[in-house]
């Protein structure tokens, strides 16, 4: 069976196909299919395709029950890097400052420890995880629910370009396929499939991130959930996961331990960190230090990557 032909056929017809279907449409497609010109068209744009049966195909993804016929790749890295241990970081698009800080910190720490950070390039948690990994100079992979030549969401075109510089942008859909709501759950199975562990940072009760977590559980992969405030609806999904038995994640070391990576000994903490999360004014009041000095210290800590700020609230990075 020709996997490129199948991948293109599935993209064109908008069907979810694991194996070649029966029927005249497919037979006709196969007859017209010219592998050399199809590959040449991909190469022209610098894209690559790896079939499911290719030895370089990510083994973890090949092992799920409905693997894609193959993956399209865009980016500087070799597809083989997907065989390296990978972690998926997923969560809400409209995340809170807390979710953004956690996602970014996790992306940074996991990538710094040598893990590949996989996510979906969506707004919010996904983008923060990608950015965190890039900040640490690590490898990150974005899985799209549309063709790899599409910039979706458009605001993340620049982020996608930076990801592709050192990592990969991948999709099971052929270049040119438009984003559509029903493709995102299918994309999530690839996110979960590529990773040995999936981390849900923030999710509402009915969230795409929970679909990813479900798919990961179905495949027997490890699922971590970041605990949140019980009163926040943005944490309802993650807290429900914890109730169902997902491993709680309070630091990147929790994940690293499951990969057998020894965490580095913790550095001595700055005393200001003990008061976080807090606003600058609360720190002024709690420490008795003048506002200009608090501002200076917080910037120093921010530059050291120990603190991040969102909407006026400073948090210690995980």
């Amino acid at each position: 069976m020709n996997e490129l032909a199948l991948a293109l056929y599935a993209s064109e017809s908008g069907t979810h196909l694991v194996d070649a279907p029966r029927g005249v449409a497919w037979a006709g497609h196969l007859q017209r299919f010219d592998e050399r010109s199809a590959r040449a068209r991909l190469a022209e744009k610098g894209f690559r395709f790896l079939g499911r049966s290719d030895p370089g195909f990510p083994p973890l993804l090949g092992a799920i029950h409905d693997p894609p016929a193959g993956l399209f790749f865009r980016g500087g890295a070799e597809p083989e890097l997907l065989a390296r241990p990978a972690v998926a970081v997923v969560g809400a698009r409209a995340c809170s400052g807390y979710g953004a800080t956690v996602a970014r910190g996790l992306g940074r720490d996991l990538a710094a420890a040598g893990l590949v950070v996989v996510s979906g390039l969506a707004r919010g948690v996904d983008a923060e995880a990608h950015r965190g990994a890039l900040e640490a100079g690590g490898i990150t992979v974005a899985v799209l629910g549309c063709g790899i030549d599409r910039d979706y969401p458009a605001a993340h075109a620049e982020l996608a370009r930076r990801i592709a510089e050192t990592g990969l942008v991948v999709s099971e859909y052929a270049p040119g396929v438009e984003p559509a709501p029903w493709r995102f759950p299918a994309r999530n199975r690839i996110v979960a499939g590529l990773a040995a562990a999936t981390i849900v940072v923030e999710a509402r009760e009915r969230s795409g991130a929970l679909i990813t977590a479900d798919l990961a559980l179905e495949e027997g992969r490890e699922v971590f959930a970041v605990p949140g405030e019980i009163t926040s609806s943005l944490s309802a999904g993650t807290n429900a996961l914890l109730k169902l038995g997902a491993s709680p994640l309070t630091a990147a070391t929790d994940v690293l331990a499951s990969f057998g990576i020894e965490p580095e000994p913790p550095a001595p903490r700055h005393e200001l960190l003990e008061h976080l999360p807090a606003t600058a004014d609360e720190l002024t009041r709690r420490t008795g230090l003048p506002a200009p000095e608090i501002a200076r210290t917080l910037v120093d800590l921010e530059l050291a990557g120990l603190v991040s700020a969102a909407d006026g609230l400073y948090r210690a990075s995980p």
């Binding site: 600058a280 200076r296 910037v299």
Partner: peptide, 15 residues
């Protein structure tokens, strides 16, 4: 440097 550090605290936030 302390003046620059304080000035950085009032930059446009990432959001």
């Amino acid at each position: 440097p302390e003046h620059v550090a304080e000035a950085l605290a009032y930059r446009a936030p990432q959001e």
